[in-house]
């Protein structure tokens, strides 16, 4: 399956490995084996212009994280300049100011870690967010932070490098700390910090796959992101 660009095609149904296992074409042990190595087989197309391609393997996963950190960093940079932040409570200024620094640090870290493999700067579109409005800003922050956690949780299994897995693990728990704090600002002293909308009956937080995450992110990103070479 090629050209899985988020825009303009929107959702492209991918057969995930679970479904593949159910198809029974091969023994299940063989099927997992087969799919794991397939990700580079379709790379014969030349890169398309005007879009970014995340690439394959661990580089692809890091670029995926870098794309999300770019989005978060750009969002908080905008928050800092907006009317809501200017008049926010002292507590909220501390929280949002910290988040701006953390996400900017994450973004710059991934950029330098990826070196020449780093994707270009994404063009963001925050026109749906009213930066003078507390509800709008905190609602978007909640979306971004929860999305980041689910993205890292879903992507960890595809990393081959234990060192990179640890780096991702160091970041994802901070994203979860952010998410809980933002949720508590929205609905103080409630159980929303780890709400049933995210945590299932086994106490496990949701994970989202590449397509789900990038589709959600695409509402705020103009640049087309090709993730077709990511591991699956």
């Amino acid at each position: 399956m090629k050209n899985e660009l988020i825009k303009p095609q929107g959702l492209v149904q991918k057969t995930d490995r679970r479904n593949f296992l159910k198809m029974g074409a091969f023994s299940a042990a063989g099927a997992g084996l087969l799919l794991m190595g397939c990700d580079d087989d379709e790379d014969m197309m030349p890169p398309m212009s005007g879009k970014v391609s995340l690439g394959s393997g661990d580089v692809g996963i890091l670029n995926y994280a870098y794309a999300l950190e770019q989005l978060e960093a750009a969002f908080y940079a905008e928050v800092m300049m907006g009317g809501y932040f200017a008049n926010a409570s002292a507590e909220e200024k501390i929280v949002l100011g910290d988040l701006e620094k953390h996400e900017r640090a994450h973004r710059e870290f991934f950029k330098v870690a990826l070196g020449s493999n780093a994707i270009a700067d994404l063009e963001v579109d925050f026109s749906a967010i009213d930066f003078s409005n507390r509800t709008s800003v905190l609602g978007a922050a909640k979306t971004f932070e929860d999305l980041g956690v689910a993205a890292y949780n879903g992507a960890g299994q595809y990393l081959e490098s234990a060192d990179l897995l640890l780096v991702a693990g160091k970041i994802v728990s901070v994203e979860a700390r952010h998410a809980a704090a933002i949720r508590d600002l929205i609905n103080p002293n409630s159980v929303d910090f780890a709400g049933d909308d995210l945590i299932d009956a086994n106490g496990l937080e949701r994970t989202l796959n590449f397509e789900q995450v990038l589709t959600a992110a695409s509402a705020y990103v103009k640049t087309e992101i090709d993730f077709s070479q990511l591991p699956s």
Binding site: G154, L165, V172, A176, L204
Partner: peptide, 28 residues
């Protein structure tokens, strides 16, 4: 322990999904 369970995708993902819940608790 992430690196010690990474050879099983399913166990790793479950562990990560617990890990972030603990982080939410900690933050709160």
């Amino acid at each position: 322990q992430a690196a010690n369970v990474m050879e099983s995708d399913v166990v790793l993902t479950a562990a990560l999904s617990i890990h972030s819940v603990e982080a939410r608790h900690a933050s709160m």
